[in-house]
């Protein structure tokens, strides 16, 4: 029983990480109908920003977080201008290739600057975690779970109950209609990229103490997050969260009770299952794909 609960906790913890990155995928997809394959690199950059600020510049941890997130916002804006905006009138594929190119560029730029050896980043809390009977609750995982819950609540409130959120949602559903209604579409997309980059950066900062900071950090998480967002229903915020959490739990239990070497396979088996039986995912899309 203790082992079961321990696995459940770590499964949810790692699942929450997938969820956070999946949220970034979903937001950009909703705004632009494009999959941003550099979303994982946002996480990697956020983590490196923390390394630079706390270790190289010696800033205190809590001051470094808002600065890192601001840097990520700037990167998101530049990403929009450089990677998406010039290709916005092209079809799906050129933009996707453009994001893949950006991802390769970002990884290798960091490799040049920082080298391949992973860096370590301290956790946000000094205490390692809470021991309840046989079960150990890692403080960083607890933090990740709490932040994920808060972000989901914020996101729900923002998109459903604020004018700006509704404008962004309208943009994602039908750009032409939105611009006819006087919504500044380009600005809405810009905001989405900024927010997604901040979100990705935050995910990176949160997982860095667990996974360490290396150029592979992004791809390590992004592929699973991508699978999670498909399972949840691409383009759906709740879907990203539910998909991420269930993927984390499934692969942790699969590893423990079936096979560790095939751990990564479980995630993709679930993905195949969904693509075969319910390709729209658990929650489906809010708007059906336009012909």
């Amino acid at each position: 029983m203790a082992i079961f609960l321990q696995l459940l906790f770590t499964g949810i913890g790692i699942g929450a990480v997938y969820s956070l990155v999946a949220l970034g995928f979903v937001l950009i997809y909703r705004a632009t109908n494009v999959v941003n394959f550099a979303q994982g690199e946002f996480a990697m950059l956020g983590a490196y920003a923390m390394v630079v600020l706390t270790q190289d510049l010696g800033l205190p941890y809590w001051a470094a977080i808002p600065i890192s997130l601001a840097v990520m916002g700037l990167i998101g804006a530049l990403f929009n201008l450089g990677v998406y905006y010039p290709l916005r009138h092209r079809s799906f594929l050129p933009v996707v290739i453009s994001t893949i190119g950006a991802s390769i560029l970002l990884t290798n730029s960091v490799l040049v600057g920082y080298g391949p050896a992973p860096e370590s980043l301290a956790g946000m809390f000094d205490f390692p975690g809470i021991q309840i009977g046989e079960v150990f609750l890692d403080s960083q995982y607890l933090l990740i779970i709490v932040v994920t819950i808060l972000l989901v609540a914020f996101q729900y409130f923002f998109f459903e109950h604020t004018l700006l959120g509704k404008k962004m949602q309208a943009t994602s559903q039908d750009k032409e209609m939105a611009s006819l209604l006087g919504i500044p579409v380009a600005r809405m997309i810009m905001l989405t990229f900024i927010y997604s980059a901040i979100l990705g950066g935050l995910a990176g900062i949160l997982v860095a103490p667990i996974l360490f900071v290396s150029v592979g950090l992004g791809s390590q998480v992004a592929l699973k997050a991508f699978a999670a967002s498909i399972i949840g229903g691409f383009g759906d915020v709740t879907g990203a969260i539910v998909g991420g959490l269930s993927l984390g739990v499934i692969e942790t239990f699969g590893a423990a009770y079936i096979s560790v070497p095939y751990k990564d396979a479980f995630a993709f088996l679930v993905l195949f299952g969904f693509l075969l039986i319910r390709p729209q995912g658990i929650f489906g899309e809010k708007v059906a794909q336009k012909a």
């Binding site: 996974l211 423990a256 560790v260």
Partner: peptide, 20 residues
């Protein structure tokens, strides 16, 4: 004898197997 795939984000299954 417990193998694991490279770049795993979580080793709880491996550690619990060692423990038990």
């Amino acid at each position: 004898v417990q193998g694991y795939p490279n770049q795993s984000p979580d080793f709880s299954a491996v550690v619990l197997a060692v423990k038990s």
